[in-house]
Nucleic acid binder design. Sequence first.
DNA 1: GATGAATGAGTATTCATTCAT
DNA 2: GATGAATGAATACTCATTCAT
Lengths: 231, 231, 231, 231
Amino acid sequence: MAPVPPQPATSPGECSGDRPLRRDAERNRQRILHAAADVFTERGLAATLDDVARQAGVGVGTVYRRFPDKEALVDALFGQRIGALVALGEQALREPDEWAALTWFLEQAGELLAADRGLRQMVMFTTYGRNRSGEARACLKPLITRLITRAQAAGAVRSDLCPTDIPMIEFMLASVAGYAQHTRPEVWRRYLALILDGLRPDRAGTTALPEPALNPDEMQAAMGTAHLGRP
Amino acid sequence: MAPVPPQPATSPGECSGDRPLRRDAERNRQRILHAAADVFTERGLAATLDDVARQAGVGVGTVYRRFPDKEALVDALFGQRIGALVALGEQALREPDEWAALTWFLEQAGELLAADRGLRQMVMFTTYGRNRSGEARACLKPLITRLITRAQAAGAVRSDLCPTDIPMIEFMLASVAGYAQHTRPEVWRRYLALILDGLRPDRAGTTALPEPALNPDEMQAAMGTAHLGRP
Amino acid sequence: MAPVPPQPATSPGECSGDRPLRRDAERNRQRILHAAADVFTERGLAATLDDVARQAGVGVGTVYRRFPDKEALVDALFGQRIGALVALGEQALREPDEWAALTWFLEQAGELLAADRGLRQMVMFTTYGRNRSGEARACLKPLITRLITRAQAAGAVRSDLCPTDIPMIEFMLASVAGYAQHTRPEVWRRYLALILDGLRPDRAGTTALPEPALNPDEMQAAMGTAHLGRP
Amino acid sequence: MAPVPPQPATSPGECSGDRPLRRDAERNRQRILHAAADVFTERGLAATLDDVARQAGVGVGTVYRRFPDKEALVDALFGQRIGALVALGEQALREPDEWAALTWFLEQAGELLAADRGLRQMVMFTTYGRNRSGEARACLKPLITRLITRAQAAGAVRSDLCPTDIPMIEFMLASVAGYAQHTRPEVWRRYLALILDGLRPDRAGTTALPEPALNPDEMQAAMGTAHLGRP
DNA sequence: GATGAATGAGTATTCATTCAT
DNA sequence: GATGAATGAATACTCATTCAT
């Protein structure tokens, strides 16, 4: 399967339609987004908006003109990354082997998370990230559902696996990746493998999952309430 | 197996022996620790030491007299909780069924984490928590090792599972628990079950783990470098 | 000899050239510097930056935007005053009588110190004042050297007097001026006169100085280590 | 001339008579005074009373029982040192050469100051030191007066030198000693020599001193108002 | 529109002094 | 009397956000 650029052409809304910004305004928007990606990747979400502005080569004021506040910027960034996941999902669905498709997707998403500290924090805490670009997520959900259903139909995956389990698994990998980022940045693959073994289709020794997965509404709610510390 | 109180006999120094504080000082120390547990559980580690002091009904100065800085307080709290885990581990080892012992331990530890947001943060980031009560941890490690070796000897667990995998699994559960704390606080059990299925002994469909587990030194190092965002 | 304004043309960088600040920023910078001069003159270096800000009629943040920390502000102030000394030194060199030139310079410098408690503290302690505007100092040194060499060549001053003796003498006068600031603010002139008598050229009754003067490196080092009390 | 121990048996008041403390209380008082001397010498007056107490091997409470507040402790210490000066003065008066007596005294006093950072601060600032042990000073004054009068009668010293000039000269030396304490701790001797040359009896080239010396009342007042920074 | 200057509430920490044990 | 625990006002510095230029 061909490699995929980390952030493919993910303009504001790929599914929906936003009225476009003036040419230069859009250029600034992108500069800020790139700068934010760099800065947050390196220093985490605690990085200052002044840092982002400096990296982008614009004034803070400009950042605030483009994004109402820090959370909005984080949201936008998150949306971009979800966009990348969407691309990944689409690519995965072109893989004929259903199990391989699923694992490839999980692995690619893991790599995305492992490489980006800011993204890990976005994914793991909702301090920042008010609405979390529900839009982009809306594009992603059906892809994941298809990935799973297909694999279940093929008997490649346990039948009680649900779509929302996928982001949850990514959360878990993100936590591992963050923890070992400076000591063994690849160790998250070990735990992905462990979890994949747990995803294998029902057989002797497979236990029924004691709790239902989050339904989409709960998932949405969880994303809006999880937070790290700041009130 | 009998239930266990969340924080069993966890006097100032778990394994070691400290010279006792004056009666009233010790009382205040406990008040502060309890207050910190409350406050951190509710608002996370970002809570102020002034908050802790207010909650404890003492002045900030008193907190600083007892704990040289915020990290030290967090450490002490963490030590307490590790103490609870030690007790859990000991109790687990009294269970004759090797698999049940391991799962029971993982579940209990998960409950501890699920109930305490501050603890989750302590476990997941090492920004705060300098040495992380190495002492108490030292008590815990052999217990976990025994739990695993025993289960492997009985053929109840995959043979490539390593001791450091256990805390890593807990990290993952903690991340899930945190994420869903307000929507479905128990959903972490679903992922524990999934992972447990992945821990089952080698059989058809079990994949070799692609990365070795952290060795104890790496684990130690990871604990010292993981962080959330503050520079 | 004509009187001299206390702080002559002392724009942001004395000898060097900094890119200019925005109009309003520069205005505020000056306000802060003036406020700092007032506050430090009155209450000494122990005054709070909040005090300075209040006096300047700006927020603390503004002070911190202009000067990275308290030391930097003190440095800037110190640089300004050294700038005044430079002007004094240049003026002194225009005086044909070599002895008069030297004494006039010492006296003017003494007046500067006598009038400004904050400056006395800056001069006497290096707790605050990291680099002490080495730049402006660098401008001052050759002037002092010339003043002395000239006077020595004319036989107006003892031949073992060294350039670093001049700041030391000022330190001593500053200590006197501070001590008597509220009772007899002019009494430092008495001790200047005493010292000047000691500077007179070699004659019967002049003793060889038992210790060499600090060389420039030692002077530099002394400025970096002298301190008042804070660790 | 024989050397002199730095702090000779200088119990609370040598001239006056205080009602004695209980034996053990007096012992504690001395322990505290010694500890304070050590601590202040090393870290300056900014040292904590807790530090002093720890060094003395007593609780802070005990320090406060013996000395109403930090200033009082500093005062007492200052009194002790003045006591040492008194001893020095008495010894100096036994020297038949009037000029040698004076210089020896100034040099000894300089050594005392050079060796003790805390003392320098006490002498140079009156932040701490409310009454400055007027008592012990009262003992010192006549000695200094005698030293000077004698030397003037012998024509060894300029006739306009006054008793209060002596402490002022010491202040100046203290400032130098403090400044160079880590780079050239002995350089103050250079400036003492310079000043001594200025003290030599009237001759060609001696200027009349432009300001009268402080009179004793002014001296007293200066001691009570000079201060460093804390309001 | 863009800029970056200004703002000020918020945080961890210290230390002289008081007071319960 | 001695001890050391408790107190809390004070201080330097940060950063998200607003607004004048």
